[in-house]
Design a protein around this nucleic acid. Structure first.
Length: 719
DNA sequence: GAGCACTGC
């Protein structure tokens, strides 16, 4: 417990190393009652012209004309994401009928930016300017500027390996180095080479035309496919990595527009980060001017405990100083609760937002003037040998610290309190380890195989993934029957698996389910497994939730329990629709979810996935039939698909994973926690305080040898 | 009897 009363406070050193130019806001200073479209257009025009990037429009277009690949480093607020595509359009880059594609790592970004650009262009969204993300396509044949997620462009490449409808592809936020971005960069490099070759040697493109490719390709006057212009946009200060990867590509810098943020460090290293954050919150609240506080914490648990501490300490202050409102923010929080952070604090009040990484890039909260950064972050780590996933708390990178502090300077000058000494900052890694070096690669490999890349180890990644991780994933794909002995994609299993937007194991389960006559059920199970945490239980309703959740549970395990939840929700929705109409029914469903401790956002997501993959398997011609109440077939199918995730009970009640000997316990949230089935299959193995298997179903040990002989042979067979 | 950062198709 911090001793605020005794005057315990943190001493912060300012580095005063502030070389950011200060800008006047210039926006919204006229409270215009006559905000008709003309005035609005004028305003937009003015805003566009005042962006830092506007002064270099001609030069940028010229550079793109001269260079097939260009790196653009643009700081926050430069306007690169909204403006560059418009400059290129006006510069004639769509004249051959090609379109400009801009990729984003996140769905919301693709949507909001597309909306803004459509407005700036004065066109209806979905016409000249559109976006395309999973479950939502807002483009048409007239779309010339298309925003999309990078994952979606990867999917498009499966159907059209030369991405022939694009004349320019802009990869935005490349510094984030998500798996999808990294794969995309490697792919685009190859596409560019192919298109350059085919526009030199005419035979290639001619062959392609002869094959009767459905996709219309963009040809120049001589009937050749135009080269692909590639633009990599990054906010990182160092463009060297990208430039080197693209053969010494030219890099240009565009100024940003940020308000200055004063960076403060503690004089001494902190031993207790939570306590330091708590003290700093009150220090700001009591000593600094108006403005909201954003605190970066590692996870839900930390957020909830600090929330309690702030409340406790707040009560001890004089009433005049109690005007502090606390908002937790993390991804699994139900959206109604997430939305609350956007309501401005009443006059005289200050908000403090306790957030995870979600506030670093995904969510921008207005009103933040102070950032508290303990310098830690929870990251996923994955061990290819044990197949164990875990979340570990590590120090942020310099780039991440910079990103966090930037959150204080969006509306005016701000302050960032780093809860560590300046010397420690110097010792941080420049940037975060790319995701591709710390994740399961089976999906990446499956996708690349479908694109004709057979030599994964030799693929031109910007940063090569771990060799062992590649080998393990190749093994898995081979055992699932997706790859042949020659490491080529198998037909039809591998081909079908690659087409499904799921993890390879889940795709295999669907394909097998059509043979086990339980595809109807497996579609639901896989959709439910693909989303995060279906159940959401507030801390104070633990007891109440137990009986409610129990009503869904199946003695056979969690997979069937998830199936029950989905079916109950569909039944509720259908019945409501006939009685109350569609809109009202959706609203009632959300209430039903709340009453049943189900996260309605997750359930909606599962329904979207269900509809999408159902359409996929229908198009593949798989037989969709139901096993009804006979769940034996479904469990046998699970065993046949997830055979590598089989575990046997040991005398002490723990489980031993047959494939690699790992020891784990059944997670306490599982319906099989108490029953202790002899043999189980599980969906994933996570390490927290202990090793836990989650989403578990009871199976018969003998099924393994019968259904997965490539992995298990009966011991008696040899004698 | 425990706890799960964030994305994406």
């Amino acid at each position: 417990m911090p001793s605020m009363a005794t005057g315990d406070r943190k001493n912060f050193n300012s580095n005063n190393n502030n070389n950011h130019p200060q800008f006047k806001s210039g926006v919204n200073n006229a409270d215009n009652k006559f905000d008709d479209s003309f005035v609005r257009r004028k305003k937009i025009e003015q805003q566009r012209r005042s962006l830092p990037i506007a002064s270099v429009e001609k030069r940028l277009v010229e550079e793109v004309r001269k260079n097939d690949t260009l790196i653009i480093v643009g700081e926050t607020g430069s306007g690169k994401t909204t403006q560059l595509p418009q400059y290129l359009y006006n510069g004639g880059f769509c004249q051959n009928g090609g379109i400009i594609g801009i990729t984003q790592p996140r769905r919301v970004a693709a949507v909001t930016v597309a909306k803004r650009v459509a407005e700036e262009c004065g066109v209806e969204l979905g016409q000249k300017v559109g976006y395309s993300i999973r479950f939502e396509d807002m483009t048409s044949t007239s779309t010339k500027i298309k925003y999309m997620t990078d994952g979606l462009l990867l999917r498009e490449a499966l159907l059209d390996p030369k991405l022939s409808k694009y004349s320019v592809i802009v990869v935005d936020e490349a510094h984030e180095r998500t798996v999808q971005t990294d794969v995309l960069l490697g792919l685009l490099k190859g596409v560019q080479k192919k298109r350059t070759q085919s526009s030199i040697g005419s035979s290639n493109s001619y062959d392609h035309m002869k094959k009767g490719n459905n996709e219309k390709e963009r040809f120049n006057e001589a009937g050749k496919l135009n080269p692909l212009k590639l633009i990599i946009m990054s906010a990182s200060l160092d463009a060297r990595g990208f430039s080197e990867y693209f053969g010494g590509a030219k890099a240009v810098h565009v100024m940003g527009r940020q308000f200055p943020v004063d960076i403060l460090y503690t004089a001494q290293p902190e031993t207790d980060c939570l306590d330091a954050a708590l003290v700093t919150i009150f220090q700001i609240h009591l000593e600094e001017g108006p403005g909201d506080i954003l605190v970066f914490l590692s996870g839900q648990e930390e957020i909830e405990s600090i929330e309690g501490l702030v409340r406790e300490n707040l009560k001890k202050l004089p009433e005049a100083n109690q005007k502090l409102l606390i908002f937790p923010l993390f991804s699994s929080l139900p959206s109604e609760k997430q939305m609350k952070v956007f309501t401005p604090a009443p006059v005289g009040f200050r908000k403090v937002i306790l957030a995870t990484n979600i506030a670093e890039t995904s969510v921008t909260i207005p009103g933040v003037k102070y950032v508290i950064d303990p310098g830690l972050v929870k990251v996923r780590s994955y061990s290819p040998d044990s197949g164990i996933e875990s979340l570990i708390v590590v120090k942020t990178s310099k780039a991440q610290a910079l990103q966090r502090s930037g959150r204080a300077g969006r509306e005016g000058p701000g302050k960032c309190f780093r809860l560590y000494p300046e010397s420690r900052f110097e010792g941080l890694d420049d940037s975060t380890v790319p995701e591709i070096k710390r994740c399961n690669l089976s999906n990446v490999i499956l996708q690349l195989s479908a694109l004709g890349v057979d030599d994964i180890i030799g693929f031109d990644f910007m940063e090569k993934p771990d060799r062992m991780a590649v080998i393990r994933s190749l093994e898995l794909l081979y055992l699932l029957g997706a790859l042949t002995d020659e490491k080529k994609l198998s037909d039809p299993i591998g081909q079908q698996m690659a087409r499904l937007p799921l993890e390879p194991n889940d795709s295999k389960a669907l394909i097998l389910a059509s043979q086990f006559d339980c595809l109807e059920e497996m579609l639901i199970v896989v959709s439910m497994l693909s989303v995060e945490s279906i159940f959401y239980v507030p801390r104070d309703k633990l007891e109440e939730s137990r009986t409610v959740i129990k009503s869904f549970s199946s003695p056979e395990g969690d997979h069937l329990t998830l199936l029950n939840v989905y079916r109950a929700s569909v039944e509720f929705l259908e019945k409501n629709k006939t009685e109350n109409g569609s809109d009202k029914a959706e609203k009632n469903l959300r209430k039903w979810c709340k009453d049943n401790f189900i996260n309605s956002r997750s359930l909606k997501h599962a329904r979207d996935i269900y509809n999408q993959i159902r359409e996929n398997v229908e198009r593949m011609g798989l037989k969709i039939s139901s096993c009804g109440d006979d769940t034996l077939q479904l469990r046998r199918c699970l065993a046949a698909s997830y055979f590598l995730n089989a575990a046997l009970k040991q005398p002490d009640g723990t489980y031993r994973v047959l494939a690699n000997g790992q020891i784990a316990e059944i997670h306490p949230t599982s319906v099989l926690r108490r029953t202790k089935a002899e043999c189980i299959i599980f969906y994933n193995l996570v390490q927290t305080t202990r090793n836990y298997v989650r989403n578990v179903t009871r199976i018969d040990y003998l099924w393994l040898a019968e259904l997965a002989p490539q992995c298990y042979a009966l011991k008696d067979d040899k004698s």
